[in-house]
Design a protein around this nucleic acid. Structure first.
Lengths: 116, 116
DNA sequence: CTTGGATATCGATCGCGGTCTATGCCGCGA
DNA sequence: TCGCGGCATAGACCGCGATCGATATCCAAG
């Protein structure tokens, strides 16, 4: 049986409810959510994945384009892409056997606005 | 014997050498440095510390002002403040027995610019 | 100098997450 | 239908860092 799993988009959630960092005392819940969102970016492999996708012609990449420059195994790259996907920082499009990923820059911009 | 320890300011270092995230493929070293800088912010306690300091009258706070709202012990708060200090996100001023901390918003702004 | 309070440091614990290998799943072509 | 290639998932391992109690350090007052 197939169930629809509603994946919480970390970034979208926090940008919708969390005030800017220095605009006043953050309550514990907002701090936790913002920290969770920042933790997605606070990894060298994921930062490189975002920049590598964006540097690709067409600004999209599938997993097999990333494993070699990252020098990481395919499962590890898939893991990072899932983290980025759940956060809402990339989108995924299946084309045949390949899964193409694109960066959602608006989400990155929204997150950036919270560091104010 | 006393030695002068030169503490590397994480944020200042990365903003001086690292290109914006989506401006092209990040090399591994830059990715590592940027991730290190983001990891400083990717913690709910440190986010709350920054916002609590800023919410204080005079935009400064000493350790004893932070332990209670954070519900963390004094050593833990001191630890987080040291991380923020080493990163260059806060400055420290000793006044009598008390150590007052202030947020360096320029550093936060510089880091924010890298998420582009 | 001694005491007391504020802060820093030390050492230990423990949970989280990045990485791997092994394996499952899916779509395509022969 | 079978095999293969691309990707996802499961499970295990391991290091890092958040937190704490204990203790050291520093400063002011008496």
């Amino acid at each position: 049986m197939r169930v629809n799993i509603h994946v919480v988009k970390t970034i979208a959630t926090v940008t919708a409810t969390c005030p800017p960092l220095l605009a006043g005392a953050l309550d514990p819940g907002d701090a936790e959510n913002l920290a969770r969102a920042l933790r997605v970016l606070a990894d060298p492999a994921r930062l490189r994945i975002l920049s590598l996708i964006q540097a690709q012609p067409g600004r999209e990449a599938c997993v097999c384009h990333l494993t070699e420059p990252l020098r990481l195994t395919q499962p590890t790259v898939s893991h990072h892409l899932k983290v980025l996907l759940d956060a809402g920082l990339v989108e995924r499009e299946q084309r045949g056997s390949w899964a193409y990923f694109r960066v959602l820059d608006e989400q990155l911009g929204a997150l950036r606005e919270l560091l104010t």
